[in-house]
């Protein structure tokens, strides 16, 4: 499976980091991966976004036009990427901030209140990790354990934040898994 993922939100919501950790995990699984930040013509509308490729095949283009999955953390991101998601693709919607209904019927949509969950866990900044857990539950791009390892490596200099973020990833993951059952 070639995962072509877009993650999008306000600057400061941590979407670039979320993408990097997923990419890191893909690398640890020895898959072909790439990450590219919103850069160039797609950088419009006040959102920060990044494109992540995780594939067992050739790396190919790092650019994502029609994502197999998209994570949208704010309304402008939903407006921007809802139409782009590939048929049967996945859309993770931050329902804490987005109350607009998703029109697409041909994709799998998961409404996850990532801000509320993060606040409940004690730190709004972890909303991106909640969303990342939710994404993995929906697309199984990497193993959760590997994702934790990736996070731990990325934050090797700040070990004190690892456990809380692991919990955030787990909460997002469980939220989606429960909705699947």
């Amino acid at each position: 499976m070639r995962h072509e993922i877009i993650m999008s939100g306000f600057g400061g919501q941590g979407v670039l980091l979320m993408g990097q950790i997923l990419t890191y995990a893909g690398m640890l699984e020895e898959k072909h991966v790439s990450w590219i930040p919103s850069y160039g013509p797609e950088m419009r509308g006040g959102t920060a976004n990044c494109s992540v490729i995780i594939t067992e095949g050739l790396a190919g283009s790092p650019m994502v036009e029609e994502p197999t999955a998209a994570v949208v953390l704010n309304l402008p991101s939903l407006d921007k990427f809802e139409a782009a998601v590939r048929v049967n693709g996945v859309l993770i919607v931050n329902s804490s901030l987005i109350d607009k209904a998703v029109k697409r019927q041909d994709i799998k949509v998961y409404h996850v209140p990532v801000n509320d969950i993060a606040i409940e866990l004690g730190n709004l900044k972890m909303a991106n990790m909640v969303a990342l857990g939710a994404l993995i539950a929906a697309i199984d791009a990497v193993e959760m354990e590997v994702l934790f390892t990736a996070f731990a490596k990325k934050f090797a200099s700040k070990p004190q934040v690892i456990e809380a973020n692991k919990a955030a990833i787990n909460r997002g993951y469980d939220y989606v898994k429960k909705s699947l059952n």
Binding site: T23, M27, V33, W35, I36, P37, A59
Partner: peptide, 10 residues
């Protein structure tokens, strides 16, 4: 080019 400069890969 800007893409390869900005993108991350292993």
């Amino acid at each position: 080019d800007g893409v390869i400069g900005q993108m991350m890969e292993p």
